[in-house]
Design a binder for these strands. Structure first.
Lengths: 332, 332
DNA sequence: CTGAAAGCGCTTACAG
DNA sequence: CTGAAAGCGCTTACAG
């Protein structure tokens, strides 16, 4: 389990690797960055040397030389719950992706007027809403930005929330469910609304007039909010065989409420979530998976295009329902 | 609101500042790093130039030259809920503090055997437990580390959880409360246990035999867990006028449960939390404040001492109860 | 109190 | 396909 017998004192640099592999640092650099134009055998030798030395390129040096003064900022809409799991995961993926691309990254503070505290070379905007004042502000200042969320009039990337809602509905319909509730954190956000829309549209295609049935439950975005609203509904006699929650957290709340109301999942009740956050969904929750790492990577790619002067794009990333243990055939 | 009329195209460097201020880059550097030995008027002039230029030192360059190859890693015990608010805040404070100190920072992955994926020059350990295998491992490999949490046999820093528990008890006693519950996420963690201990010790000093009363409620660490265990207790007839929760999240759960059980806070029930996380406690929750930024800063300071070869220290940071709107005089 | 210069560990044209 | 050299933006002895 020891680290080999390399000096622990002196960390290997690109020079160490170059010397040991009998090449120049330029060549090592090309290997590190997967650049073309290195003979296969050379590449292999360098790779092995790096491995043997436990070499890790110095990120600061990469940033300094690679990304000529380019720093990307992440700015979160004022007042947004930065503590939500989705944000934490997105942040960490964004940071590590940027790091790999050799770009500088900084999370931006907020001025008293809600604008980013300062302007980096490019921005990722988290939690943008319809008439977000940051958008005209950034345009005015000529700073390229990418929105996280679906939006046609700006560079943006989002999961295909609408299709995700549709898949959730489809899954439950196939299992024979007819009385289906939906728990949403609030339909005023684009993601929540699109999930709702895709979901109800699919139900209506199947002849289920969801909207009329009072099966829509709105609360906050947390598991506790979801628990309370769902438990209250169940206690008031809402009769459903399944529920689609707008996030994994909310699904966990619904699961807890079901348990406390004596419902057995999936026998008496099926539950579907959204996101597939491993720490939450685990191996149990049937949920619609969105790839957060991919969202972060795509945001970076879009931003890089913008920085090169290319046109803005709006991308929608596919999502997939992952059937697990909280959904089953409707028993009633 | 515009950014002044400086070129937005070319970002100012230390050289730009030096030229404009009519000094050398060395002098600017001294000002940036608050080093002594700069004439006050020179310092002032440089500061103003930096301000006027909107100059921000390049972090990558600082790391590269300042922190000779020193990188600090954060490693989280396997299986720990990284999604908890406390962790998110600690992480962000640690990262920004390290950044200001010009040190490299990286969050470390975990090998299949639970050890950090690789060994940086120094480590902060999050979520260490009593017989944490990372500790002998790091000692064996000669890597200095600081634990977040109270522990005598290693460099560590923690909030004074025990005193915090005592303060919570004291506050409630002064308000005339005699029947007081405690909600804990689980007494097996040091922080939770110390809070519990300080709390009950103070109660016992006041002649309240807490332990015998069944006023200890254990659940998970989340607001939902807390809600469920507290609501269940209330519905089972637990008769208390106040409750001390082991975290702000748990306190919010207790608040929600009280509301759903028809109790008015603080008239029928007083609630005290722990942490004082602004996004959670807001302006409403009476809670015991621990300074997370200070915890992060202290961890870094300790680590730097270790790196210089100084002896390990165990530090306890003071906490303070902040009375707000969820506590009041006992009415019964 | 201040400046000139070396050096941190990389990447990237430019030659060959 | 590969190497030598310049340069990224800082900090830090070393002189003065």
């Amino acid at each position: 389990m020891r680290n080999g017998d390399t000096d622990i004192i002196e960390r290997a640099t690109i020079q160490t690797v170059a010397d040991r592999a009998g090449v120049s640092v330029g060549t090592v650099s090309r290997v590190i960055n997967r650049r073309p134009g290195v003979k296969a055998t050379t590449r292999e030798r360098v790779l092995q040397t790096m491995e043997a030395l436990g070499y890790r390129p110095d990120q600061a040096a990469r940033e300094l030389s690679f990304a000529r003064n380019r720093t990307i900022g992440l700015h979160v809409a004022y007042g947004l719950r930065r503590l939500q799991p989705f944000f934490a995961l997105f942040l960490s993926h964004l940071a590590s992706h940027l790091r790999e691309s050799g770009l500088r990254f900084e999370e931006l503070g907020t001025r008293s007027d809600g604008m980013p505290a300062w302007l980096p070379d490019g921005l990722v905007l988290f939690g943008a809403h319809d008439d977000d004042r940051r958008i005209p502000y950034l345009r005015e200042n000529g700073v390229p930005f990418v929105l996280l969320g679906h939006r046609e009039d700006a560079a943006s990337v989002a999961a295909d929330d609408r299709d995700g809602g549709r898949q959730a509905a489809d899954h439950l319909l196939r299992l024979g469910h007819g009385r289906i509730a939906h728990i949403s954190g609030g339909l005023h956000t684009q993601a929540a609304y699109d999930r709702y829309l895709g979901f109800t549209t699919r139900l209506e295609e199947a002849g289920i007039a969801f909207a009329d049935e009072g099966y829509l439950l709105e609360g906050g975005f947390t598991d506790l909010d979801s628990y309370r609203v769902f438990r209250k509904a169940l206690e008031s006699g809402m009769d459903v065989t399944s529920v689609f929650a707008g996030s994994d957290e909310m699904a966990m709340g619904a699961l807890a409420a079901a348990e406390d109301c004596g419902l057995r999942v999936p026998f008496d009740l099926s539950v579907v979530g959204f996101d597939d956050i491993p720490e939450i969904a685990g191996e149990r929750l049937t949920t619609v998976r969105q790839d957060i790492a991919e969202l972060a990577a795509t945001a970076v790619t879009l931003l890089q295009k913008l920085l090169k002067g290319e046109a803005a794009q709006s991308l929608l990333l596919p999502v997939h329902l992952i059937p697990r243990l909280t959904t089953g055939r409707a028993s009633r």
